[in-house]
Design a protein around this nucleic acid. Sequence first.
DNA 1: GTCATTCTGAGAATCATTCTTGTTTAGGCT
DNA 2: AGCCTAAACAAGAATGATTCTCAGAATGAC
Lengths: 139, 139
Amino acid sequence: MSSNLTAKLSARQEQLLEALRRAEQELSGQDLHARLRASNTPMGLATVYRHLRLLQQWGLVRCRHLPSGEALFAPTERDEHHLTCVDCGSTHRLAHCPVHQLALPGEELNGFLPLFHTLEFFGLCPNCQRRQGRLPAEA
Amino acid sequence: MSSNLTAKLSARQEQLLEALRRAEQELSGQDLHARLRASNTPMGLATVYRHLRLLQQWGLVRCRHLPSGEALFAPTERDEHHLTCVDCGSTHRLAHCPVHQLALPGEELNGFLPLFHTLEFFGLCPNCQRRQGRLPAEA
DNA sequence: GTCATTCTGAGAATCATTCTTGTTTAGGCT
DNA sequence: AGCCTAAACAAGAATGATTCTCAGAATGAC
Ligand SMILES: [Mn+2]
Ligand SMILES: [Mn+2]
Ligand SMILES: [Zn+2]
Ligand SMILES: [Zn+2]
């Protein structure tokens, strides 16, 4: 029950985390499953999701959701953020994390131990600004 | 944030945005649908999601996804962020936005027009820290 | 009025994720 | 080695939020 306190990850968990690290970018659960199947460490889809959830709970994996609804997973140590166009969905990776060593006030934390964060900016890419020319707004 | 544009929202879109603003906290698409049905401005589920997507594209509505997969919607002008426990899922609202007037460098933006952002912190709440004691480390 | 265009919503379809369940594996003990 | 139990595994079924379909309802120019 509390084996999650052990110092070492299981073999499957290592394989999964390694595949994520080897990937050049974030992967969906399905992508990850397909890659593992194609590699020499195949595993079932349920196993992928089960360990993905556990690794998230250990703070070793993070996920972000695209506007389309896809969930993309990445190792926590990869501290990347994006600009995403709300219209066409295109995304650009930021070169640096804008809150890299932002310290939250102690009274905000209130005993909470931060492990990682997600930060995403949304707006309009140059193309869509040009194409739209205008935006509807409230009365 | 901003915008003061000239185009007008449709009646349905106004009703939807009003319901979101009236809500004391973020609502899922299903929640919103249920509330509208119970109110004097009922509308179909497809219409709720259709306009929710459009309002996101106008930059008037934002959404965040919980680890559970639910998408929660809120008006963009509500600039709130949370601490979420990766273990038990409990969330705590931050009193202030830590990046409220953070300016992204122009060369990062590269013509992109920011409309809003999402920022969420993940970690361990005091209860779960106490219950776990420590975290597994990599091999 | 007529016709064209846009909007709506009930229900069906989608599909990523989770659950179920029978099977296999990993140890611990003798 | 043999036996036993608990945990891990994976195939397929189930779930459920979101999206799609499409026939009817509104709108709005003429
Ligand atoms: Mn960061
Ligand atoms: Mn903010
Ligand atoms: Zn765009
Ligand atoms: Zn907790």
